[in-house]
């Protein structure tokens, strides 16, 4: 999985590409923890390039969402689609995260 970050409208946009699995989930958790330490607690995650997610990936998303919540931060997910969306739905995770159709919609909602 490739993880890239950029700043947009006082929010950090994290772009994840490839596989979000047991091997790569720790990379994601580390990246979000670094952002939190740096005071970046408004986060949008762009799923457009993500092909695959497992329970380890969902766990990574949950752990970091809890950390952000504890720090008074926010996280929204954009472009969750296809089979990745179906994994969210099967697990019940689809209903608990804030999801938007586009990054722009996530940025607007978080502002």
């Amino acid at each position: 999985m490739e993880i890239q970050t950029r700043n947009e409208a006082n929010t950090t946009v994290i772009t994840i590409t490839g596989r979000f699995d047991a091997v790569t989930a720790p990379d994601y958790e580390k990246k979000v923890q670094e952002l939190i330490v740096g005071g970046d607690i408004r986060i949008v995650v762009d799923f457009a390039g993500l092909d695959y997610i497992s329970s380890a990936g969902l766990r990574g998303l949950l752990v970091t969402a809890k950390l952000l919540k504890a720090k008074g931060g926010q996280v929204r997910f954009a472009n969750v689609a296809g089979t990745v969306k179906e994994v969210f739905d099967i697990s019940g995770f689809g209903t608990i995260f804030q999801m938007d159709a586009t990054v722009a919609a996530s940025l607007a909602a978080i502002a």
Binding site: S55, L58, R59, L62, K66, F93, T95, I96
Partner: peptide, 10 residues
């Protein structure tokens, strides 16, 4: 979800 043990999901 915040209270759910994640173990059985796999």
């Amino acid at each position: 979800i915040m209270d759910r043990p994640i173990g059985g999901l796999g």
